[in-house]
């Protein structure tokens, strides 16, 4: 059996890639993809621990997280479309009407 640590290291790396993507990318959709990567890294952590503990809690939690991530995608894409209507771009650095 593959040890739990390997999954945890993989998910930590994925999470770090997601955080770097959010911090460095300018395109709204790419940032959103990076956020999804973070959430899925968390899912992997839950699954690894649930496998180790032989528990259902972690597995079920992952289903909830996936459902919430889907709802987040719906809301987020709607907001980006609305932003595109105003600015013809989804570059987040262009959204500078108010000071950050």
């Amino acid at each position: 059996m593959i040890p739990t640590q390997w999954f945890l290291i993989l998910s930590a790396i994925l999470f770090a890639i997601g955080v770097c993507g959010v911090l460095t990318r300018k395109n709204g959709i790419t940032i959103f993809m990076a956020i999804e990567l973070m959430v899925n890294a968390v899912n992997l952590t839950f699954l690894a621990y649930a496998r180790q503990f032989h528990q259902l809690h972690g597995l079920i939690f992952v289903f909830f997280v996936m459902a919430i991530a889907a709802a987040e995608a719906a809301v987020g894409l709607a907001i980006f479309i609305s932003l595109f209507h105003h600015r013809e771009t989804i570059d987040v650095d262009e959204a500078n009407l108010m000071r950050w």
Binding site: V75, F80, S82, L83, A95
Partner: peptide, 9 residues
């Protein structure tokens, strides 16, 4: 819209 985008991200 801009506020929503910042809040969302």
């Amino acid at each position: 819209t801009e506020a929503a985008m910042k809040y969302f991200v």
